[in-house]
Amino acid sequence: MTGSRVVALGHYQPAKVLGNEDLAAMVDTSDEWIRSRVGIKTRRVAGPEEPVDALAAEAAAKALAQAGLTPADIDLVLVATSTAIDRSPNMAARVAARLGMGSPAVMDLNVVCSGFTHALATADHAIRAESASRALVIGADKMTEITDWSDRTTCVLTGDGAGAAVVEAAPAGEEPGIGPVLWGSVPEMGHAVRIEGTPPVFAQEGQAVYRWTTSRLPALARKVCEKSGIAPEDLAGVVLHQANLRIIEPLAARIGAVNAVVAKDVVDSGNTSAASIPMALSKLVERGEIATGAPVLLFGFGGNLSYAGQVIRCP
């Protein structure tokens, strides 16, 4: 058994930008109301010609290019999404077809907003067990397709996009670049974030989620660091699920990550569910805000109420 590491990242967002002023023309809201409550300025909206697998494939292709690899080099594709309307072919199979891959294992994971960190752990476990050698791990969601545009409490939140990571075995003798996962759920709070109905619609109990994240998440995040042997003050970056800026900023402080760059992509991208962590991380790396090899805490939380986190070394 050997550990694994993230060697490259990529992200993709649709071209259409929906600003707060645009929303104010659609529903009873305002730029000031939205910014003061969730910190979001803009979000991206995919058109009907951009299904979830198209978003995912764009991000995956960029990650492969960054890694200097071809689609044939991948033997496992994991797509974290909760907005795949069709059951089969799944999103991973469709991404593999779009990229012209050979015969990878293809699986979707629906763990909503913590989907990417669950998928990253799954890829790490597969590589450690030697059932995969190199994986594409993708978070992709088209949240605007399941948004109730008449509900001002949720329609101001959602955006579309995808982020991807290439994961491979760590070289012999090298410390693993993906630390142990801490994952779990609060089943009795599963109703707090919902995508239900025909057609499916996103709804949530915002105050319940806020209370849980602010009271429980800091201790869980510190436990993630402990499992990886990293003190919170030694983190170079913190990438939490991009749900709400008013949650992200105080949580990073309460975790004790006083020297870390804190991802705040929610301001420009909104809540993109499973895409939010890989997309935000990819942007930090692209801008050179975190050094190669530096420790970064990833922590997803949301629907079910599920959570998953790990410390990785920045590619």
Score class of each variant (00 low, 15 high):
residue 151 D to P: 01
residue 152 R to P: 02
residue 153 T to S: 14
residue 153 T to I: 05
residue 153 T to F: 04
residue 154 T to E: 12
residue 154 T to W: 09
residue 155 C to F: 08
residue 156 V to Y: 00
residue 156 V to S: 04
residue 157 L to H: 02
residue 158 T to N: 13
residue 158 T to E: 08
residue 158 T to A: 12
residue 159 G to T: 01
residue 160 D to I: 14
residue 162 A to K: 10
residue 163 G to F: 11
residue 164 A to P: 07
residue 165 A to K: 05
residue 166 V to A: 12
residue 166 V to C: 02
residue 166 V to W: 12
residue 166 V to P: 06
residue 166 V to S: 08
residue 168 E to G: 12
residue 168 E to Q: 15
residue 169 A to H: 07
residue 169 A to M: 08
residue 170 A to Y: 02
residue 171 P to H: 14
residue 172 A to G: 09
residue 174 E to F: 08
residue 174 E to R: 13
residue 174 E to W: 08
residue 175 E to Q: 15
residue 175 E to W: 03
residue 175 E to V: 15
residue 175 E to M: 10
residue 178 I to W: 03
residue 180 P to W: 09
residue 184 G to D: 07
residue 185 S to G: 13
residue 185 S to E: 10
residue 186 V to F: 14
residue 186 V to D: 13
residue 186 V to E: 15
residue 188 E to Y: 08
residue 188 E to K: 06
residue 189 M to Y: 10
residue 190 G to C: 05
residue 190 G to F: 02
residue 192 A to T: 13
residue 194 R to G: 14
residue 195 I to K: 08
residue 198 T to G: 03
residue 198 T to I: 13
residue 199 P to T: 05
residue 201 V to I: 15
residue 202 F to P: 07
residue 205 E to N: 06
residue 205 E to I: 02
residue 206 G to E: 01
residue 206 G to M: 03
residue 207 Q to C: 04
residue 207 Q to T: 12
residue 208 A to M: 12
residue 208 A to R: 14
residue 209 V to G: 04
residue 210 Y to Q: 05
residue 212 W to H: 15
residue 213 T to H: 02
residue 213 T to D: 05
residue 214 T to V: 15
residue 214 T to W: 00
residue 215 S to L: 05
residue 215 S to F: 04
residue 217 L to T: 00
residue 219 A to W: 06
residue 221 A to C: 14
residue 222 R to K: 15
residue 223 K to P: 03
residue 223 K to V: 07
residue 226 E to M: 13
residue 226 E to V: 09
residue 226 E to Y: 08
residue 227 K to R: 15
residue 228 S to F: 10
residue 229 G to M: 06
residue 230 I to E: 15
residue 230 I to A: 11
residue 232 P to E: 13
residue 232 P to F: 06
residue 233 E to P: 06
residue 233 E to H: 08
residue 234 D to E: 14
residue 234 D to K: 09
residue 235 L to I: 14
residue 235 L to G: 13
residue 236 A to F: 06
residue 236 A to P: 02
residue 238 V to C: 05
residue 238 V to D: 08
residue 240 L to S: 11
residue 243 A to T: 03
residue 243 A to D: 08
residue 244 N to C: 12
residue 244 N to F: 03
residue 244 N to Q: 12
residue 244 N to W: 10
residue 245 L to F: 01
residue 246 R to S: 09
residue 248 I to G: 00
residue 248 I to T: 01
residue 248 I to H: 05
residue 252 A to C: 11
residue 252 A to E: 09
residue 253 A to T: 12
residue 256 G to Q: 10
residue 257 A to I: 07
residue 258 V to M: 01
residue 260 A to N: 04
residue 260 A to G: 05
residue 262 V to G: 05
residue 262 V to I: 09
residue 262 V to S: 06
